[in-house]
Design a protein around this nucleic acid. Structure first.
Length: 321
DNA sequence: CGAGTTTGACCGGCGC
DNA sequence: GCGCCGGTCAAACTCG
């Protein structure tokens, strides 16, 4: 009965960032035109305008989805208030089994295991292609957030990412750009497929952990649960100096990664092209805005980084010519 | 040979 | 207090 978390999260992901991201992308494309455009051929202009068109289309789609979700939220709230009224009028019924479960979830318990399993249930009920941050970032509209165990909201930030893989792909690898070291694997009770445990190995002191397990309902979907925040820049940012064209593109497109990056992640994960699991985008990065902001600030203030970025971009442009 | 993975053992939290 | 279960450790193993 607890649908609030995924509904709200979906709203968070869908309502705001896409538009910001669209603008950022547009500006990026336009600025690329100004800086590099002189050398661009007419075919490139066409492809860029096609991209802008595509952006418009996706934006409209997002808008539509947002409206649907808003409607769903309203319906949910109405239903919920009706149910509350009903329970108030018929307190006797509150002792049946279903309500016991409800009470357990609502009163909830500082019990770690319980809260986790309820999270899993929510996710299983939700659209598997929706990225669900099961943590404090998602702003709940009702009192649910207040009832969440304090430790959950204070402790390590937890985000969840769904990645569709090819049916034949049995590995538990979610490529997000970070370096992970597997330190364990376990078959859990609620899911026959094994759960893999990873630690971030990019920086020895990085506390971030990742759990990857196949969805119970759809074995082709990998559920990656990230815990904690990276205390180092995204590896792809480090690679920009080596001229990795894709990374340059992605990162240069996000002068403020906070607003733009989540949308990139969302779109890639949602799109049907996720049959290509090779996207190198970090699905989590942005659960911690302050961290990312800090990283972005330090990077943009670093003259050598800027120089390297400029060199990489100009090198790429020259290479194209 | 070093780095990464596998896998059984162990530990601690939780429910009964 | 005991058993279950998820999470972690660490020795053995694999791979480049």
């Amino acid at each position: 009965m607890d649908y609030s978390s995924w509904i709200n999260t979906s709203l968070d992901l869908n309502i705001n960032p896409p538009r910001v991201h669209e603008e950022v992308l547009k500006k990026e494309i336009e600025s690329n035109f100004f800086s590099l455009g002189m050398r661009m051929s007419s075919t490139k202009e066409e492809s860029t305008s096609a991209l802008v068109e595509e952006l418009k289309r996706v934006s409209a789609e997002n808008k539509k989805l947002t409206e649907m979700l808003t409607e769903m939220c309203e319906n949910y709230n109405t239903l919920r208030s009706n149910w509350m009224d009903y329970m108030r009028k018929n307190p006797d019924n509150s002792n049946n089994n279903n309500n016991k479960d409800k009470d357990q979830q609502l009163n909830s318990s500082s019990k770690k295991r319980k809260s986790e399993s309820s999270n899993n249930n929510n996710n299983n009920n939700s659209n598997p292609m929706v990225i669900n941050n099961g943590n404090s970032e998602s702003s709940s509209t009702d009192e649910e957030s207040c009832k969440k165990p304090r430790e959950e909201t204070i402790k390590a930030k937890i985000s969840r990412v769904y990645v569709r893989t090819e049916g034949s792909d049995t590995s538990l690898i979610v490529k997000d750009g970070y370096q992970w070291r597997k330190y364990g694997q376990k078959v859990t009770r609620d899911n026959p497929s094994p759960r893999a445990y990873f630690k971030c190995s990019f920086a020895p002191s990085c506390p971030v952990k990742k759990k990857v397990q196949r969805s119970v309902e759809d074995q082709s979907i990998l559920v990656a649960t990230y815990e904690g925040e990276h205390n180092h820049p995204h590896p792809s940012q480090m690679e920009t100096t080596s001229g990795s064209s894709r990374c340059v593109t992605l990162n240069s497109a996000c002068p403020t990664p906070i607003s733009s990056a989540p949308t990139v992640t969302l779109d890639l994960t949602k799109s049907k092209s996720t049959n290509q699991p090779k996207n190198n985008v970090n699905p989590k990065i942005f659960s911690s805005e302050s961290l990312v902001e800090q990283m972005a600030n330090s990077l943009t203030k670093d003259p050598s980084f800027r120089a390297a970025l400029v060199a990489a971009i100009s090198g790429r442009a020259l290479h194209k010519n």
